[in-house]
Design a protein around this nucleic acid. Structure first.
Length: 517
RNA sequence: GCUCCGGUCGUCUAGCGGUUAGGACAUCGCCCUUUCACGGCGAAGGUCGCGGGUUCGAAUCCCGUCCGGAGUACCA
């Protein structure tokens, strides 16, 4: 049976990682089973509406590569419009609430806010169940209601929750969840301003849009009996509810900025690959049932099943994300990596992110990272690669082994592309003072700087010097050379790096090193 | 308070009545090696929240309990 799933965010802010996982599961299910994925905007609260939010959703979803079959950002659609405010304007909810009022499952309540507050205070003082259980209106005479309408008193429409009943909600992850209907207050379905509440609008739309599976956050589980009751009141078949557990920070608390980025686009800006992020996020709360972890998107889709979902909350482990990201980078060809780097540079948010970057994980005795400088190095590499693609690809091949994200290529490849790489003073002090330094540099200049050599030929050239000078180990040869050529004490294999650098760069850098002796 | 949900190495997880409780990240060690990484191999790390019960046998089933979380809005 084709699946119809929906991602229905409220346009109040950014798209964070928890929500990403929910859509990802929607998407994986739809890819696996076939069917449709619908984007619906739940903008029924005018006071919290954020006009930039919908754009954020669409942008983020575009970046991660989750496509929808229907939604407000697409033309038409069999169930358009896909914004609840527009659906409200069309009278969809009004006609549906009329049905419920007609069949006795909903009623108008004219209580003022003050009255409601007094009721709550009374309930608190007397330690009775808090909430609206009917007040004066649940069973009011038609004449009383008409009089109130005639007076022009504002009202809300509430669901008439049946009393003395057990309500059993089916949740795919947890099985049956039971509630006592006497603990459920009569929820508001239509607000005084005529807008539907989430409870009403979402259920009506899920039915009208023929949604088969409702994937949403665990926080909805306690209101699920009223959703179940709404379906029942209409006589509709409820969809399959899947309440996904929350994702929390390393300290077990709700994910917040303190734990690192929560905004999905910030992960993009930091050089995480969409494939690695999706792979990682899918694994929090889900597993294919075997030991597979690093998976391609195709494998993920193949392996995905709602039955692999876990009920307990999961922690977001940045270290594992970093590992998986590096692992993914290593599994790609240099061409693919370069394409990803270009793609990242083309994203507007990347630059903005780094310009406003504040390093929050500064270790003791370490200076905080400078976001602007990080971006500039990255940008320099991108621009360089456009005019020197072959060379840039060689650099990527050597550096993709030791990088954990795309942004790091900027720093890692810097020495390859600048004419005069910065020299590490301590390294210079240690290795340039070697007695054989001058002779070594002269040798490299004349041999390695004379022609394009392979890594093996480079090695042979250095070994020849080592042997001629009776030096026991290769280290004293390699280290000064590395410092002279890269300014650093770490990096790719020296012979590979020299081969990529080529004779011209080697000569220039050796000359500079000679001048420093 | 009330109502629900959850609880396997530090972390993500496998497990579905019989396993030396498996894998991955992180940690540590060894190997590779010119460095840093990568990679390979290995170690350490779990009284399966706790207590009862059912059973020849329980992480797995039942009850209780503790701890954590969510909801308790004319927000979603």
């Amino acid at each position: 049976m084709p699946v119809r799933v929906r991602f229905a965010p409220s346009p109040t802010g950014l798209l964070h990682v928890g929500a990403l996982r929910t859509v990802l599961y929607d998407y994986l299910l739809r890819q696996k089973e076939g069917g449709s994925c619908i984007l619906r905007i739940e903008d029924t609260d005018r006071s919290r509406y954020n006009p930039d939010s919908e754009h954020e959703f669409v942008e983020t979803l575009r970046w991660v590569g989750i496509e929808f079959d229907e939604g407000p950002h697409l033309e038409g659609g069999p169930h358009a419009p896909y914004r609840q405010s527009e659906r409200q304007a069309l009278g969809i909810y009004a006609s549906k609430i009329a049905e419920l009022e007609a069949n006795g499952h909903a009623y108008k309540a004219f209580d003022t806010t003050e009255e409601i507050e007094q009721m709550r205070e009374f309930q608190q003082i007397n330690k009775v169940q808090i909430g609206y259980y009917g007040g004066d209106w649940r069973d009011a005479d038609a004449s009383k209601v008409e009089a109130a309408i005639a007076e022009g008193k504002p009202y809300v429409i509430r669901l008439k929750v049946p009393r003395d009943r057990k309500i059993v909600v089916q949740d795919l992850i947890r099985g049956r969840v039971e509630f006592d209907s006497n603990t459920l207050p009569d929820p508001v379905l239509i607000k005084a301003d005529g807008m539907p509440t989430y409870h009403f609008a979402a259920m009506v739309d899920d039915h009208l849009m023929e949604i088969t599976h409702v994937l949403r956050g665990e926080e909805w589980i306690s209101t699920s009996p009223i959703h179940w009751l709404i379906f029942e009141a209409f006589g509709w078949e409820p969809p399959i509810f899947v309440h996904c557990p929350v994702i929390v920070g390393a300290d077990g608390k709700k994910l917040s900025k303190r734990h690192g980025a929560t905004r999905v686009l910030d992960y993009m800006a930091q050089g995480y690959l969409k494939s690695a992020l999706k792979n990682f996020i899918a694994l929090i709360g889900w597993s294919p049932g075997d030991d597979r972890e690093a998976m391609s998107e195709q494998e993920l889709i193949q392996a995905f099943s709602l039955s692999g979902l876990q009920p307990s909350p999961g922690k977001f482990d940045m270290e594992k994300l970093k590992w998986l990201n590096g692992h993914t980078i290593r599994s790609m060809t240099a061409e693919q990596v370069l394409a990803e780097i270009e793609g990242l540079y083309a994203e507007e948010h990347t630059k903005g992110f780094w310009e406003n970057f504040v390093d929050e994980e500064v270790l003791p005795n370490q200076t905080p990272r400078d976001g602007k400088a990080i971006f500039e190095r990255f940008e320099k590499f991108v621009l360089f690669a456009r005019t020197n693609q072959e060379y840039a690809l060689e650099c990527i091949k050597l550096e993709q082994e030791r990088v954990t994200n795309l942004i790091e290529f900027g720093e890692a490849c810097e020495f390859f592309i600048v004419e005069e790489p910065a020299m590490d003073p301590k390294a210079v002090e240690k290795w340039f003072s070697q007695p054989h330094a001058r002779a070594l540099f002269d040798h490299i200049r004349s041999v390695c700087g004379a022609a394009v050599l392979t890594p093996d030929e480079m090695k042979a050239a250095l070994v020849a010097f080592q042997e001629a000078n009776g030096i026991e180990k290769l280290g004293p040869i390699v280290h000064p050379t590395r410092v002279a050529l890269t300014g650093k004490t770490f990096g790719p294999g020296l012979f590979e790096l020299m081969s990529v650098l080529g004779p011209d760069r080697i000569v220039k850098r050796i000359d500079r090193a000679l001048a420093m002796l």
